[in-house]
Design a protein around this nucleic acid. Structure first.
Length: 908
RNA sequence: GGGCGAUUAGCUCAGUUGGUUCAGAGCACUUGGUUUACACCCAAGGGGUCGGGAGUUCGAGUCUCUCAUCGCCCACCA
């Protein structure tokens, strides 16, 4: 006996384990067509959040559908070592234990980091399993594992040899918390309330002449090496050749003239600190200014500052403001809103700083990446993301990629220094050989070489992901089969970090690795990119940990089941649009409690329950050993034929939706088909009266339909469909929904579908009339149909009349030539007139009012159609089919008016 | 400053090439229902001049322009 309510909990775990046991997710190359996806590797120490749930649900749908369609589906999972994020977490964890990173050797620190990774590294992947993700877990990769790291070193050396990687002193974004540089993309700008200080600098050699500048960062005056004004600014023209003294320290610095300075801003005079501002640096270059770096790498002041040495920059800002004030250098202080760069990972305020870093020349790469998408070798869904992509990659905007990071967690840069010489090689031994050759000193030892202390940017390993997960650099056999992958599913926020760079890497290396296969298959890492939107809360804020507005993914799954959550995520997610995920919850003692039902997920759960109960109904039927009587048989045949046609129609819709990655649309058509067509109509049509048995043939057909629907829905809601699939009938070993056969769309009979739609309308009108007249749903009523050619044609459809009688609980349905039937109310379905006998006196006034209203509507309708048809240009220009359609509307409208007018006349 | 997207029912959103099915879905709402598969349900119903304006067209939710509001990306902000 099955419970009336579907219980996702145990069911889902049971089937997931079953699929694992059967090894269904595992893929190896064979003769079948491959269908591959690589997961966007989440941070190894990350926790499943709504964004992951969304894009992994989408990937799973695509993979499961491909699997059902008989393709060799391979979804490669894995995690990213996420150098900054992970290192920051490890540092924090160590600090709690009272251990400072600076007290550890590189080796010891890495030991802790690996321990941490082993302990927490798998969590997010097991969470994905709860969602039903059918990844090939045997292929789980990690961006820092041996093979992948080797590939990273390989491409670094390769690029160095090609002259694309270089080392240079640049103004970079310094994260004083993580003590590393960041790429431009890792800096998040935020608006902040701050102060604008107007400071007076005394002109050298004068008693009381001053220049006032405006700055938001008074502490940086200690690094000033000039004051700049606009050459056109007449207010300052007299200062040509003069110098001013930096307050407090009295350093003499020149006044320079540079068009960068905006005359309107502040006082029109700008302090120039080349070491700590991107623009100041540029000015410094132009005027050959000295660069004084007043900060240590942790954001405290260095000895070069002369004052406040060792104190934190923000403390100094407060203190120096006071000291300047006391010394009479403060003209005024205004409130000011400006944007301040923060580290994406540590949230520390970024310090522009001049550092020696490794860069990758992006000019050619950017061109390649642009061309790939422009030529449609890589197709974006939705297309408009091309604009954003183009905007970033075009020559004017593209910047070289800073790939070194002052961290330990990551691939250490394979550059070895000997004095001023640098040797780049995959191993220290190779570097040594180079060094010996170059210097002619055979006595050089490994210990004479100093390896670069820095590691490579995480994305420098992620950009190889589609190649390295298949071991492409060392043994490209699998690469030749699975690559290019079919589609990449990811958020648009990492379009630049990751998507663009994977495209670059693909074109750079895949060709050589694939050999001849590249000719036929292409070298792009994926044929399509599906950009998901960002998941936002109901106030449209991006979901994030710091805001605490992201529902605990696992809590949701516990409450609604993996299927329910998948349904919920997807039904609100059309491609590329941000989705507002309404999941009210509250946090009590750090625990998340789902308060209200997250409506969309709940709808998913209810959907499971609906199907579950349809199953219960079929299983609850007793089977007759007799064939059905003729009438029942006629209905069943009609129901069966109709559902088949309707299914084929739906299959065409599905095909189209999938082709364009309109997955929420695909899910909705299935939802409507299953709930509406299958449950509400088909099952009701074939359901025997209470207590009576059903014939075997009809039941078998119903089960066959149900089975097909489970296969179709399986990609979206894998658990419930597998469960129902197994409860529908006895299954052989290895006969599972996940590997069943996906139905193919066949032609369908539109005419039949239309006829049944018509019949459904009649039933609805009968129900409506019962409702309005307070008559019980099951009280048998006679229904008469005004005889006409069209009416005859409609009822000639075998089973249709019987079906209407059954569904509308009629006593009978007959033709009549009478103009009026006693005690009846009339209604129109299509253009046909029906009389429903109500066995009660009809309220003539109300009836008249109703008909009058309908009549007016019909007249308006005819008038508007008439206007259209009266327009010669419409008749001459519109396609014949369209005109014909309008003519039919007109004819139908006129016949409706005639009928209504007659009815009205009879009431008078 | 450069660019992109959004604006459709009370709410959250679909609406693919302009023309059957175009004004839709879910939730919410109203009415009726212990019709034994399902009250996590059934049946029926109300509700929108598709942000404003102009244009193209025989015909515009759909194409063009413009304005407004909101969101985002990039650059800059002493």
């Amino acid at each position: 006996m099955l419970s009336t309510h579907y219980q996702p909990g145990d069911t889902e775990d049971k089937w997931y384990q079953h699929w694992l046991d059967k090894n269904y997710f595992h893929s190896t190359p064979d003769d079948r067509e491959p269908f591959s996806i690589v997961i966007p590797p989440p941070n190894v120490t990350g926790v499943l959040h709504m964004g992951h749930m969304l894009n992994n649900t989408i990937q799973d749908i695509l993979i499961r559908q491909a699997r059902l369609q008989g393709k060799n589906a391979c979804w490669v999972p894995g995690t990213d070592h996420a150098s900054i994020a992970t290192e920051a977490k490890v540092v924090k964890m160590l600090r709690k234990k009272g251990i400072k990173k600076s007290d550890l050797s590189r080796e010891d620190f890495l030991k802790y980091a690996w321990e941490w990774k082993e302990k927490y590294g798998g969590i997010i992947l097991t969470q994905l399993q709860k969602l039903g993700a059918s990844c090939d877990w045997d292929r789980t990769r990690f961006t820092m594992e041996d093979k992948l790291s080797k590939a990273v070193l390989h491409v670094f050396v390769d690029l160095y040899k090609k002259g694309k990687v270089y080392r240079g002193l640049r103004m970079t974004n310094w994260d004083p918390s993580a003590k590393t540089v960041l790429s431009n993309e890792e800096v998040i700008y935020k608006e902040e309330q701050s102060k604008l200080y107007f400071l007076r600098y005394q002109i050298e050699g004068t008693e009381d002449e001053w220049v006032t500048i405006a700055t938001t960062r008074p502490e940086t005056i200690l690094g000033d090496t000039a004051v700049a004004v606009n050459p056109k600014d007449e207010r300052y023209a007299h200062l040509k050749g003069k110098r001013v003294l930096v307050p407090l320290i009295g350093r003499s610095i020149p006044i320079i003239f540079d068009p960068y300075v905006e005359m309107e801003f502040g006082t029109g005079a700008l302090k120039v600190t080349p070491a700590h501002d991107m623009n100041d640096y540029d000015i410094g270059q132009r005027h050959d200014l000295e660069t004084i770096d007043i900060f240590n790498d942790d954001g405290t002041l260095s000895e070069a500052a002369q004052l406040y040495i060792g104190q934190d920059r923000f403390a100094v800002r407060k203190q120096i403001a006071k000291d300047l004030e006391a010394a009479g250098h403060v003209d005024k202080i205004e409130d000011y809103v400006n944007t301040v760069g923060h580290s994406e990972r540590t949230d520390a305020v970024i310090e522009p700083r001049l550092t020696l870093q490794w860069f990758l020349d992006m000019k050619d790469f950017a061109k390649t990446a642009l061309k790939a998408v422009k030529s449609d070798e890589v197709t974006f869904y939705p297309e408009h993301f091309w604009n954003m992509y183009h905007n970033w990659l075009n020559e004017d905007n593209i910047r070289d990629w800073c790939i070194s990071r002052q961290l330990w967690w990551g691939q250490r840069i394979p550059a070895f220094y000997l004095g001023d010489d640098v040797f780049v090689a995959k191993t220290a031994e190779e570097a040594l050989a180079q060094a010996r050759a170059k210097t002619g000193n055979a006595a050089l030892q490994l210990s004479d070489l100093q390896q670069d202390e820095d590691v490579l940017d995480t994305w420098f390993s992620s950009w190889l992901w589609p190649i390295t997960v298949f071991d492409g650099f060392e043994n490209p056999a699998e690469l030749k089969y699975y690559y290019p992958t079919n589609v990449l599913v990811t958020g648009w926020d990492i379009m630049f970090f990751w998507v663009a760079r994977m495209v670059m890497a693909g074109y750079e290396w895949a060709g050589d690795l694939l050999g001849e296969a590249a000719q036929t298959k292409g070298v792009q890492p994926f044929h399509a990119v599906y950009f998901t939107g960002m998941v936002r809360d109901n106030q449209r804020r991006k979901m994030s940990k710091s805001l605490g507005n992201s529902p605990e993914a696992l809590e949701l799954i516990r409450a609604y089941g993996g299927d329910g959550v998948r349904f919920g995520m997807l039904s609100s997610a059309s491609a590329g649009n941000d989705i507002v995920f309404d999941a009210p919850f509250e946090r009590i003692d750090g625990k998340v409690r789902v308060l209200n039902q997250s409506e969309k997920c709940n709808q998913g759960l209810k959907f499971c329950n609906k199907m579950w109960n349809a199953l219960r109904m079929l299983r609850g039927l007793t089977i007759s050993d007799q064939p059905a009587d003729a009438q029942t048989q006629a209905i069943n045949d009609l129901a069966n034929a109709w559902l088949n046609n309707k299914l084929n129609q739906t299959l065409h819709d599905l095909e189209r939706s999938f082709a364009e990655y309109r997955l929420s649309e695909a899910l909705m058509s299935l939802y409507n088909f299953i709930w509406g067509d299958f449950c509400s109509w088909y099952l009701e049509m074939i359901k025997p009266p209470y207590g009576e048995p059903i014939d075997q043939a009809t039941l078998d057909q119903a089960i066959a339909h149900f089975e097909k629907l489970m296969t179709l829905l399986h990609p979206f809601m894998p658990f419930v469909t597998e469960e129902i699939w197994h409860l529908l009938k006895e299954r052989q070993e290895g006969e599972d929904c996940i590997v069943s056969q996906y139905p193919e769309a066949a032609a369908f009979d539109k005419d039949l579908i239309t006829k049944v739609e018509m019949a459904k309308e009649v039933v609805a009108r009968v129900r409506d009339n019962r409702n309005k007249n307070g008559i019980k749903a099951r009280e048998p009523l006679p229904l008469y149909l005004k005889d006409s050619e069209k009416a005859q044609a409609l009822m000639a459809q075998s089973g249709l009349q019987e079906m209407i009688i059954k569904m509308a609980f009629l006593e009978k349905l007959e033709f009549t030539t009478e103009e009026e039937i006693a005690n009846s109310t009339s209604f129109l379905a299509g253009t046909e007139e029906f009389f429903l006998v109500l066995n009660k006196t009809i309220d003539v006034a109300a009836e008249r009012e109703r008909i009058t209203k309908e009549l007016e509507y019909a007249k308006g309708f005819v008038a508007s159609v008439g206007k259209k048809l009266g327009n010669e240009r419409f008749v001459n220009n519109a396609p014949a089919a369209v005109v014909e359609r309008e003519r039919k509307k007109m004819a139908d409208g006129l016949s409706k008016i005639k009928t209504l007018e007659e009815s009205l006349a009879k009431l008078n």
